[in-house]
Every structure is written in structure tokens, then in C-alpha cells.
Simulated scan of single mutants.
Amino acid sequence: MCIGVFLWQSHPLYPFLLFLNRDEYHYRETEALRWWEDGETLGGRDLVGGGTWLGCNRHGRIAFLTNFRETSSIPDAKSRGHLPLRFLQSQKSPVEFAEEIEKEVSLYNGFNLVVAHVFSKSMIYITNRPRDGEKLVTLVSPGIHVLSNANLDSPWPKCLRLKDGFSQLLTLNQGGEFPVKTMMEEVMIDTVKDQEPELPHVYPPETEYHLSSIFVNIPRPAGSYGTRSISALTIKSLGEVCFYEKHLDQDGSWKEHTQHFVIQNQSFT
């Protein structure tokens, strides 16, 4: 379970700004934010599935993923974490990539995937669990959006809280650069939980209650589960990228990682 809030193509200095919490079992082996072996891809890595939940590359490509909350699963399903990686390492436009993925969504358990190219101003949302009457593939409009474990911009209480808090921070910090790390910590470490009537009622109420906060921490029989990393990814109008991650290490300590670079070939590639 994860949650993210992002600003897309609606600010003069920041065409893209994302805060994202990744929730996972604490024992699941994970590699912190770093450049991958190809020298082009930047992100954390799930060492079990081999993919990523959030990444970008040197050419302005962005991809991030959340699981869809559901009670059933497909035996031997393909790893969802490879979907962001495939886009980041491809030459396809977001639309072309979405058309490719649309043909194979039945091979995966429920997912939400956002892929974008910042300089073509193209962002696409792909899900294999669309609302009734809606499409698998949707163009994302400029503005503020929240993605958790239901469809994009679903009105779950914690999604509404996150959007409201993020919007207030944008208003308070108008003009010039954002204090991104401070803003991220203001909204992404929120442990407020919802009461039973407000819960999505997909899982049992006691589980839903603990998952209803933005920052999650749950003791489970299989081991501790909760927010393993908190990320901030910003891209400025001149192609300056800052990728910050606060990561829960295997020894139980929180460690910080930051990468800065400037996007190459600032056209669609």
C-alpha cells in the first residue's frame, strides 16, 4: 500500500513535483535510491521482484506505481514493479507505452501506474481496475492529484487530507523555490487515522484502520509493515531534477539519499 500526491504542469517553476510514501513489509529486501547499472535510470529497487515503485531517467521520463487494494490475487502474476522500469528504459511515448500495456493488464494483480515525459507535457494514468464505465488508460490533466490504492483521485479520507494539506503548503510557499523537504515532512508523516464508517471496507476494519493514515506502521503476524520510504521528486522548468529519499534501513534506522542532475536532450526522447 502506498500513497502519493503530485503537482503536474500547473506551476511556473515546477512542471512536476511528487511526494510518495512506499508501504511494504520491513523485512522485504530493498535497495535505496541510486543510479541503476544502465547509468540512465534512477530510483529504489525491490530486490525480491527486481523492479521499482518510483523512478526517473536522464531524459525526463517519470514512472510510479501503487498496488490496488483488493482481496483476491492472480496466482503466478507478473511483477508489477517491472512496469515503471519498462517505461523508463523504453523509447516509447507515454501514450504508446500505455497502448502496449493495455494488451497485457490481465497478467498482473491490481495496479495503478503513472508514466510521463516532462518536456512533452504528456502524463498517462493506467490501471487494470478501472471504475465502472471508465477506461484503462486516461490522460492526466494539469493540477494536483492524489494516488493511493484505489483509482486516481479517489475520495478516500486520507487522500483528501493529503490533497488539502499539500494545497495549503503550495499556497503558503508561493513565489520562488519550495522548501521541498520541509513540505514533504509536513504532509507525508501524518499518522491521523479514520474511524470505521469512513474506511473503504475492502479489508477487515481493524486492518483498514491502521492503513488509513498517510504514514503507516502496523505490527502484523508476518512482521512489521508500513512506510519504508518517503520520496520527493521535483523537476524544475529548466530541467533541474532533485530526487530525495528517506529510507528505512534493515537495521531500523532512517537514512537519507539525494541525487541531483539536469535532464539531457530536453525534447521528447
Score class of each variant (00 low, 15 high):
residue 7 L to K: 00
residue 15 P to M: 05
residue 19 F to M: 09
residue 24 E to S: 07
residue 25 Y to A: 02
residue 26 H to W: 14
residue 32 A to S: 09
residue 40 E to M: 14
residue 41 T to W: 01
residue 51 G to N: 13
residue 51 G to F: 09
residue 56 C to V: 13
residue 63 A to T: 05
residue 63 A to G: 09
residue 65 L to M: 12
residue 70 E to Q: 12
residue 74 I to F: 09
residue 75 P to Q: 10
residue 76 D to Y: 01
residue 78 K to L: 15
residue 78 K to G: 03
residue 82 H to V: 06
residue 84 P to E: 14
residue 87 F to H: 15
residue 89 Q to L: 09
residue 90 S to N: 13
residue 95 V to G: 05
residue 104 E to T: 15
residue 104 E to R: 14
residue 105 V to R: 01
residue 111 F to W: 12
residue 112 N to I: 03
residue 112 N to V: 03
residue 127 T to Q: 03
residue 133 G to T: 04
residue 134 E to G: 01
residue 141 S to G: 00
residue 164 D to K: 05
residue 167 S to A: 15
residue 169 L to Q: 13
residue 170 L to G: 06
residue 171 T to C: 10
residue 176 G to M: 06
residue 180 V to I: 13
residue 183 M to A: 05
residue 185 E to T: 11
residue 190 D to G: 01
residue 192 V to G: 11
residue 195 Q to G: 04
residue 196 E to N: 10
residue 197 P to M: 08
residue 199 L to V: 11
residue 205 P to Q: 13
residue 210 H to L: 12
residue 211 L to P: 07
residue 212 S to H: 06
residue 212 S to W: 09
residue 217 N to K: 11
residue 222 A to Q: 10
residue 245 E to S: 08
residue 253 S to D: 15
residue 254 W to E: 04
residue 254 W to Q: 02
residue 255 K to R: 15
residue 256 E to F: 10
residue 265 N to Q: 15
